[in-house]
Simulated scan of single mutants.
Amino acid sequence: MTKETNKVDHHFLGSGWAFPVTFSVGNHQLNLSAYEENINESIDIILQTRNGERCMEGGFGGGLQQFLFKKMDETLKGEIKEAITYALMYNEPRITVTDVDVQFRDIRGGVVEILLTYMYNQTNTRHNYVFPFYINEGTNLI
Rank of each mutant, 00 (worst) to 15 (best):
H127Y: 14
M56T: 07
K77G: 12
E74W: 02
L116Q: 02
V112I: 15
Y129S: 09
K81M: 06
L47W: 05
E82I: 02
Q66N: 07
N27T: 06
M89N: 07
R108M: 13
G78N: 15
N40T: 09
G58R: 13
Q66K: 11
I80L: 13
D99Q: 11
S33P: 04
F60P: 02
L64C: 04
T85N: 09
G61C: 08
M56C: 04
T75S: 12
K70E: 15
V100E: 10
T117V: 13
E37H: 07
L47R: 04
E53I: 08
Q66M: 12
V102Q: 06
G58N: 12
S42K: 01
R94M: 05
D73V: 03
G78Y: 14
V111M: 10
L47V: 06
I114C: 08
V112K: 02
A83N: 01
T96G: 03
I84D: 00
T117Q: 13
G58V: 08
I80N: 00
E41V: 07
Q103E: 10
E53V: 07
Y118C: 06
Q48H: 15
Q48C: 14
T123D: 02
E92M: 08
C55P: 02
I84P: 00
F67H: 05
N51H: 13
N121S: 04
V112F: 04
N91V: 06
I107G: 03
N121P: 00
I45Y: 02
K70G: 05
F69W: 13
V112S: 04
Y35F: 14
G78W: 14
N40Y: 03
E36C: 07
I46F: 12
I95V: 11
L115P: 01
G78K: 15
D101L: 15
R105T: 15
C55L: 11
N27H: 08
V111A: 08
R126Q: 11
H127S: 15
E92V: 09
I45C: 11
L76M: 14
V102H: 08
V100M: 11
F104L: 11
D101P: 00
H28S: 03
M72N: 10
D44N: 09
D106W: 05
T98R: 15
D99W: 00
I43N: 02
M89L: 12
P93I: 08
E113L: 14
G61M: 07
Y118P: 00
